[in-house]
Design a protein around this nucleic acid. Structure first.
Lengths: 327, 327
DNA sequence: CTGTTAGCGCGTTCAA
DNA sequence: TTGAACGCGCTAACAG
């Protein structure tokens, strides 16, 4: 059952393959309406589908977009992908996905691989903050849009959540409840701009309202240090702020094990990827980044780049704050 | 900054492109050790990466695997992808992913698209139980392995969770706790073999132990019918069994809103994708499918197919039951 | 409106 | 051990 080629169709209809090619690429003004109809029929009957790689070889686009996510085992990635696909579908593009799994080696390999596949553009959730680590990508002249995180100094457009302002909003809500102290909990391994911005959002409010702001850097979700931190200032109304969904869960578990009652003994809030906040009792006040919309915005931006050569742009997608009863 | 081609490397080294090609494909026995070294250096210096599509055009493999997932917005998909990528990495393959988003139209389009991209194999989480719906795929002679679900009648190998036995195990645990009634909660829209097998797992135990087994089919996570069902038999020790993570969450929320206390008033268990069971209080007893391992097993099976032409096989990956305190 | 011709980058006979 | 020449399936001048 050999694949049917453009030549087969041409023979069937009795024209040259050029005509078929014109049909495929929508140059209808250069084809007789009658032959056009015959071509359409032949294609349907024979089940002909043009060979993508042969097309790419000639034309300068592959109809392929590459995506490199930092950590696939994550609902954020899922929704991001779904968002991207939503707009790729409209443009008839396919998505090549690679999981760098938080390894720089993997990431570099992934990027090279994507370039070798002649992708028309790359969406990258970068592992490094340092633009120099992507020098080879810059030189290759590939269309790149960063997502979720940025690199320094600025070289590519990016789409991120409104990390600073969303965190500030949440801090404001905390302030309104007379919290005197916020413990910002993040991963020691993570030096992304994203997490820095979230911290700064809190910081801004903390300064204005004279709230104590501590930062706890954690490895492997190990929260043992939290105990000491909490006991150091026993009579201070304290809230935890988890910088991502994974840590939020870890905190919740830790609090439960240590018999803290939320929100009586301690307040908690943070970023949530899995809509956990709604299920848990008491409802947890959380920030939802809207990854699906981020994905869509990123893909759109990339297409504008590929198409009309649009200038640099750092877009922010609004997060959704849901206030429940965890503080 | 034009891409460097095999010709450029050939000129640099001062040999013909044939020799370079031989080097690329590992035919070292046909190259002088000296020129071989020179080629290696030139490639490194020039940063040459062979053009994938040009390669594919000639050779009969694209080093591309296609994946069609039923619903991307799901942790199951994430882990599945991660598992698949783990083994693709070893084989130097790329992954083309499409989200059929529970739409048969999308799925068909996705499959066609993948075939047009000359993927060497397809991993499909099928939306339809009916093999006839994939007739075009069968005819195309593509290497296909089904994942998570099967189609009838059997045409392709598959890798799924051990739905029947895991559900049976859980039912056994329920029986041990003297539950008199189990309500199986599933989506009305879902007619997959997967869910059927889970039901049958429960059924087996229900018959042996004279437990009442009801099935509640739900639309849009709307559980209003559950109320009536529960009130019909007030003094029967009842447990809910949610067929997937989404429904488990929905049930949990519903119970909370209706002030049921777990496990005193009612027991609950089911399939969980998001490791929710551990965080919620009281810990929920759940079944975890191990999607990452399923992904790995699927990819391996596919490669065995592509390579040595292995026979039909329906593999099952063991799920993990975690008993906590929800019944 | 249509066909002829010449590659895109690479792999592969067939000769040397 | 190496190279010349052809073709994979398709697109894009350039003629007609």
């Amino acid at each position: 059952m050999d694949k049917v080629t453009i030549m087969d169709v041409a023979n069937e209809v009795g024209v040259s393959k050029t005509t078929i090619s014109r049909y495929l690429n929508g140059h209808f003004d250069r084809i007789n309406a009658h032959t056009r109809e015959k071509i359409k029929q032949a294609i349907d009957e024979m089940g002909y589908v043009p060979n993508q790689q042969a097309r790419t070889l000639k034309a300068k686009h592959s109809h392929l977009i590459g995506l490199v996510v930092a950590d696939m085992a994550n609902l954020y990635s899922s929704f991001l992908i779904r968002g991207i696909q939503n707009v790729l579908r409209e443009h008839d593009y396919s998505l090549l996905i690679v999981d760098s799994a938080n390894s720089l080696t993997n990431e570099k390999k992934a990027l090279t691989q994507l370039m070798a596949s002649n992708v028309d553009g790359i969406i990258l959730q970068p592992l490094s903050v340092n633009s120099q680590d992507y020098q080879f990508l810059v030189e290759s002249n590939t269309n790149v849009v960063l997502v979720d995180r940025q690199t320094r100094p600025t070289v590519w457009s990016s789409v991120t959540a409104d990390n600073f302002s969303a965190s500030r909003e949440m801090a404001l809500a905390l302030a309104k409840q007379k919290y005197q102290r916020i413990i910002f909990i993040s991963l020691a391994s993570d030096s992304s701009t994203t997490h820095a911005l979230r911290y700064e959002g809190l910081q801004k409010v903390a300064q204005q309202k004279s709230i104590l702001l501590d930062a706890l850097e954690v490895t492997d979700n190990d929260l043992t240090d939290l105990d000491r931190l909490l006991k150091a200032t026993p009579h201070t109304k304290t809230a935890l702020f988890a910088v991502n969904g994974q840590l939020l869960i870890a905190c919740l578990q830790w609090l439960q094990e240590h018999h803290y009652v939320i929100p009586n003994d301690i307040g908690i809030t943070g970023y949530d990827d899995s809509e956990l906040g709604a299920v848990l009792s008491p409802g947890i006040s959380t920030i939802d980044q809207n990854p699906q919309e981020i994905g869509q915005a990123t893909a759109r931006l990339l297409f504008e780049y590929i198409g009309g050569k649009r200038g640099h742009e750092d877009a922010e997608v609004a997060s959704k704050l849901t206030l429940r009863h965890s503080f």
